[in-house]
Each structure stands twice: as C-alpha cells, then as structure tokens.
C-alpha cells in the first residue's frame, strides 16, 4: 500500500499529482466539471451513475460526464448513508477504494434498475441495525438487563448495562438501544409495538 502517502485515493483513475494550490485555482475557475472532490460537495446525477459487480464481491463504478464526454471508472466502490438514522433513503455517498468521497446521490430515484439493485444490496450489507418488532422479556438483575427481542433480522438476546446511558431517544417515540458489545437495536416507533412489548418498555424505561 505505498499509495498511502498520497492524499488521494488509490483505486481512482484520476490524476492526483496536482499541488493543493493548483487544485484551488482550477476549482474556482471552472465550476462544476472540474470541481475537486476534496473541497466541493459533488452531487451526482443518477443518470450518470452506473455500478457493476466484479467477478467477486467488489463493485465498480462508472461515472459518465457529458460535459467532458468521457467516463471515469472507480474500483472497489463502497456506499454510505449520510444520515443513516434520520434519513436513510436519501443522500447516499459513493466512496472509492481508499474510502474517499466520489460524490453523493441525493436520491436513488432515476438510477438504472441494475445499479439501483446493487446500491440497495450494498446498503443492506453495510448497515446491520436490527429493528425490534417485539420485546419478549427484559430481566433486570444486578444493575444490568437482559433483553429477549424479535427483530427483522431474527431473534436476539442481549445484555444492556446502565440502561439510562444506553438508550438513545432519537425522537420521542423512536429509541436506539446499545448493548454491552456496542451492538445497536432500533425501535422505530415504540407505540407501534404490540401491547405486551409496550408494557415491558414502559416498565423498564
């Protein structure tokens, strides 16, 4: 990984030898086309974004740029949500092989179906946040509590210590519980749980 010394990504095929001063100049001179990912927020046009799966598990990204009329290609692309908790379906960032920003997709609408499917898949892979559908039991002893819950990812049993500090109230009705291992569990709307689960939550929270 000798490339680590350079500030720009491996994986990207762009020219990275520009000195910082030059980079500033070009980005002010020609606005959108040559704007530099290091300084400007780049919003990608869904129509120009295409993802491909390599033979294995990696993703390759091709960005077509009609102004220049050329294409740029990135290997080992990753996706990340900018607001994974408050707005998971918008503002999806595309990251290159060195985990540097390529650009943001404001929305996934307008992507080609194959690309859309790959992005959905990659998001699903990156974010493992079980959503609690039912609280079966919470047993409290010795200052920690053992939770048995059903989630959309399957049943979990986890231990929470110091409940007050481990429960994050995202909204008045949405809570996020962090267990002793740092795993998190989402309860998107506590009022939508069935009565018994709600009663248990009322009791312990």
């Amino acid at each position: 990984m000798q490339n680590n010394f350079q500030t720009n990504g491996a994986g990207s095929s762009r020219v990275t030898e520009t000195t910082p001063e030059k980079a500033v100049e070009t980005s002010t001179a020609t606005e959108s086309a040559a704007s530099d990912a290091r300084f400007d927020l780049i919003l990608l046009d869904p129509a120009h974004v295409r993802l491909f799966r390599t033979g294995g598990s990696a993703l390759r990204l091709t960005l077509s740029d009609p102004q220049i009329g050329s294409e740029r290609s990135y290997l080992r692309v990753a996706v990340a949500r900018a607001f994974p908790l408050s707005n998971p379906n918008q503002y999806i960032g595309l990251r290159d092989g060195a985990d540097k920003d390529i650009g943001m997709l404001v929305t996934l609408d307008g992507l080609e179906p194959e690309t859309r499917a790959l992005i959905d898949d990659a998001l699903h892979r990156r974010y493992f946040l079980p959503r609690v559908t039912r609280v079966r039991n919470v047993r409290e002893e010795f200052g920690s509590s053992t939770w048995e819950v059903d989630t959309d990812k399957g049943p979990f049993t986890f231990v929470v210590r110091n409940l007050r500090d481990s429960v994050q109230e995202l909204t008045p009705t949405r809570i996020l519980i962090t267990d002793v291992d740092g795993s998190r569990f989402d309860i998107p709307d506590i009022r939508k749980l069935e009565d018994k689960s709600y009663a248990i939550l009322q009791r312990v929270l």
Binding site: P84, R125, Y127
Partner: peptide, 18 residues
C-alpha cells in the same frame, strides 16, 4: 468494518471475495 457488524474478505487476484 461495517455498521453493526463486519465482513470477512479474501483478495483473489485483483478481485475481492466476501
């Protein structure tokens, strides 16, 4: 490292296999 978990990857040629 993923969010809430992780993946075990191997590099195979120029490719990555999960």
């Amino acid at each position: 490292n993923l969010v809430g978990g992780g993946a075990l990857l191997v590099g195979k040629g120029t490719d990555i296999v999960e």
